[in-house]
Amino acid sequence: MASDPNKQDGEGAYQGGKSYWLDEPKNINRIYIGLWVVCALLALADLFYHKHAEFHFAEFPASYGIYGFVCFVFIVFAGKLLRKFVMRDKDYYDR
């Protein structure tokens, strides 16, 4: 990273060049709030139509959303745990 001639500062955002919409922390926060709103709307939507689920347990409102959320968090934490067992130095096989 230090050898990168374009890099002007150590950490954080690249200084210089034109600025982008996503460079604003305010806008990142907007996306974050937007996600909450979309999720809330999708969860509510389940109350307004007859749900054709493959199995009975999937007919519970927002069940897909909750399952997706839980699975995602589980995968990430399981991955972190997995690192303890299978992570080695980048040149592990070259030694």
Binding site: Y32, L42, Y64, K80, D89
Partner: peptide
Amino acid sequence: LQLLFFAMLAFAILVKKGLYPAEIDSTVL
């Protein structure tokens, strides 16, 4: 959409809370 957006929300929360694992230059066995 529920499945996908709730999972995306999970990602956003994990990143915001600093719980998402950082990328590490490493070998995975």
